[in-house]
């Protein structure tokens, strides 16, 4: 019995190791080659260089894309978190008919294949004549990201003693004051988590951005454009930058997501 358990454990560890290897090897490789002086990614490595970073640093197109990505990510983060909070609070506070339908609909967008969502967005935006503007990307990404924010905040609200809000009313707080003084402070860790998570999703998102963006390219879109032209090590440099930005956001999100306030019985 103990022996077989040990074998299973060993297999699982090897399995986990392989998962990490498959996920991280390409990324690590890409990071290494971003500092390599050779034009083509081959072994043995050439000398250490920052030349590819200098190239993207001096490229106004990359700067433009970074600026777009930043505007989109921050706007999407804020909008999705607000919408996600409202949706989650509705679920926490109210009982109504078809509540399950409401929840299913609220969680639906990420289950639609991205390419279909992207095409539909493009078709719809051109139909009403607003395609190719930055705010249309924000709109499209918000549709995609709000459910993530809702899921994260909803989990936190589920840990809240329902009496807490009533207790605030009971002590003279209006509904708005109770929201400001009790519900939001309680949900703050999940709100920060949702903000970082949705920003990361928006920052990395390619398909919808590519279809909807028009001339306002975001970082993932410009990566593809550079890639289509030729094999260029500056891709590795941009990739490294994107990787660290996203990882930072996701790690912050995770830290706040697993925040538990000490239990009060």
């Amino acid at each position: 019995m103990r022996n077989s358990e040990r074998i299973i454990r060993a297999i699982l560890i090897v399995y986990l190791a392989f998962i990490f290897i498959f996920i991280f090897t390409p990324i690590v490789t890409s990071i290494i080659f971003s500092f390599n002086s050779d034009r083509f990614p081959t072994l043995p490595l050439g000398s250490f260089t920052l030349k590819w970073y200098e190239t993207i640093y001096s490229d106004p197109d990359v700067w433009e894309a970074a600026r777009n990505s930043l505007i989109v990510a921050v706007s999407v983060g804020i909008l999705s978190t607000i919408i996600g909070f409202c949706t989650a609070y509705t679920d926490f506070r109210y009982q109504f008919r078809f509540k399950n339908t409401y929840l299913a609909l609220a969680l639906l967008p990420p289950t639609v294949p991205l390419i279909i969502l992207a095409l539909a967005m493009l078709a719809w935006f051109s139909k009403i004549g607003v395609s190719g503007q930055l705010w249309t990307i924000i709109l499209a990404h918000t549709v995609l990201c709000a459910p993530f924010a809702m899921a994260v905040i909803r989990l936190r609200l589920q840990q809240m003693d329902a009496d807490l809000e009533s207790a605030a009313w009971n002590l003279g707080a209006s509904e708005w004051a109770a929201m400001k003084e009790v519900v939001i402070p309680f949900a703050t860790p999940s709100i920060i988590s949702a903000l970082c998570l949705t920003m990361a999703v928006s920052f990395d998102e390619f398909a919808v951005a590519w279809f909807v963006s028009g001339l306002n390219k975001t970082i993932p879109v410009i990566i593809l454009e550079i890639l289509q032209g030729n094999i260029d090590p500056q891709i590795n440099a941009i990739g490294t930058f994107v990787f660290f930005t996203s990882m930072t956001l996701v790690i912050i999100a995770q830290l706040f997501f697993s925040f538990r306030s000490p239990k009060t019985p």
């Binding site: 003693d161 009496d163 009533s166 207790a167 402070p185 703050t188 000490p262 009060t264």
Partner: peptide, 8 residues
């Protein structure tokens, strides 16, 4: 009954 003290 749960006391409902504000934990934060």
């Amino acid at each position: 009954q749960s006391l409902a003290l504000f934990p934060f």
